[in-house]
Every structure is written in C-alpha cells, then in structure tokens.
Computed example of a mutant assay.
Amino acid sequence: ESPLGAMLGEDADLARQAPPRTRLSARAQTLAKELASVEFGTWFEFVNGEQSRRLKLSWFSPTTHNYMFVDNSGQRVAIKPLTLLASEMEQGLARIVPPERAAPLMDRALTAIYRVLQRFTGRTAEPR
C-alpha cells in the first residue's frame, strides 16, 4: 500500500489490472514509446460502446507511468496506466484527437468566420 495508491482510491485497482509492459504486442509497445512524448493538453477520445468521450491529458507521472485525464471543466475523470492506454489505443478504444479538431467548436467556428471575412475583404488569411 503506497501513499499514491491511497490517493488514487478506486483508480489504484485500475493500475493493478493494467497489462505488464512485457505482455504488450509490438504495436502496443511502439504506442507506449510514442505516448512518452505526448504533451500535456493533448486531447484524447475514448470509446465505450456506442459513446465516445473527449478528455484532455492533464498530468503524467514518470514514476508510476500513470496518465491523468480531465474533462472540459477540468475535473479529474480518469487515471490510466501507460500500458492500459497503449492497449486501448491499439484496440481502437482510445485515440489522440488531431489538433485542428481539439479546439472547442466555438473557437473553430469563429476562426472559420474570420478566414471568410479576410477572403471577402481581399486580405489573405495568416497561416496558423
């Protein structure tokens, strides 16, 4: 029983259920290596049956190799061990949302309107 385990509560069970790194397929091991360089603030989409949910990577522990995800309001929603996250990505249950789709809908709409207005006035849109 560790202090981290006590803090995580029910999430500690999830960490114990994660597959060991040696049991991961070659593809999942590659994904695990790539996940090590993912930046905080990156959005992920998790699929659970017919529903999908977008969560933002908020924190990574280099000691325990756990990733913490928050929702749009900043509430902690999930903590996933690296090996579990890599396995879910391999199975198509989790994926990284491309940056252009990660922005909130209103921001994307306002950017599109801004570009249309720039074209309408003859100005060129600044590359983003």
Rank of each mutant, 00 (worst) to 15 (best):
Tyr67Phe: 08
Ser58Val: 01
Tyr67Lys: 04
Leu105Cys: 05
Ser61Thr: 15
Ser73Asp: 14
Gly92Gln: 06
Leu55Met: 14
Ala86Trp: 07
Lys80Thr: 08
Arg53Val: 11
Trp59Tyr: 14
Pro62Thr: 05
Phe40Lys: 12
Ala94Phe: 04
Glu88Gly: 07
Asn66Ala: 04
Pro104Cys: 03
Ala86Leu: 03
Asn72Gln: 08
Arg53Glu: 15
Arg76Tyr: 13
Pro99Asp: 15
Pro104Gly: 05
Ser58His: 13
Ala78Asn: 08
Gly74Leu: 10
Ala86Lys: 00
Ile79His: 06
Asp71Met: 05
Ala103Gly: 03
Pro98Arg: 11
Ser58Lys: 10
Phe44Ala: 00
Ile96Pro: 02
Thr42Trp: 06
Ser87Gly: 04
Leu105His: 07
Met106Gln: 14
Phe69Val: 01
Ala102His: 02
Gly49Ile: 10
Val70Tyr: 00
Lys80Glu: 06
Lys56Asn: 06
Leu55Gln: 11
Asn48Ser: 12
Ser73Ile: 07
Arg95His: 09
Val97Leu: 03
Phe46Arg: 08
Ala103Gln: 14
Gly41Asn: 07
Pro98His: 07
Phe44Asp: 00
Met89Val: 08
Glu50Gln: 13
Asn72Met: 06
Asn66Gln: 04
Leu93Ile: 00
Thr64Ser: 13
Phe46Leu: 10
Glu45Ser: 08
Arg53Tyr: 09
Lys80Asp: 00
Val77Pro: 00
Glu50Lys: 12
Ala78Thr: 06
Lys56Leu: 09
Glu88Arg: 15
Thr64Gly: 02
Phe44Lys: 02
Val97Lys: 03
Ala102Gln: 14
Ser73Lys: 15
Thr83Tyr: 01
Ile96Cys: 01
Gln51Pro: 02
Phe46Tyr: 06
Ala103Glu: 12
Lys80Trp: 11
Leu55Phe: 09
Gln91Gly: 01
Arg101Gln: 15
Leu105Ser: 04
Leu84Lys: 08
Ile96Asn: 01
Asn48Tyr: 13
Gly74Pro: 01
Lys80Cys: 09
Phe60Tyr: 10
Val47Lys: 13
Thr63Lys: 10
Leu105Asp: 05
Met68Ile: 05
Ser52Gly: 03
Asn48Gln: 15
Pro99Glu: 15
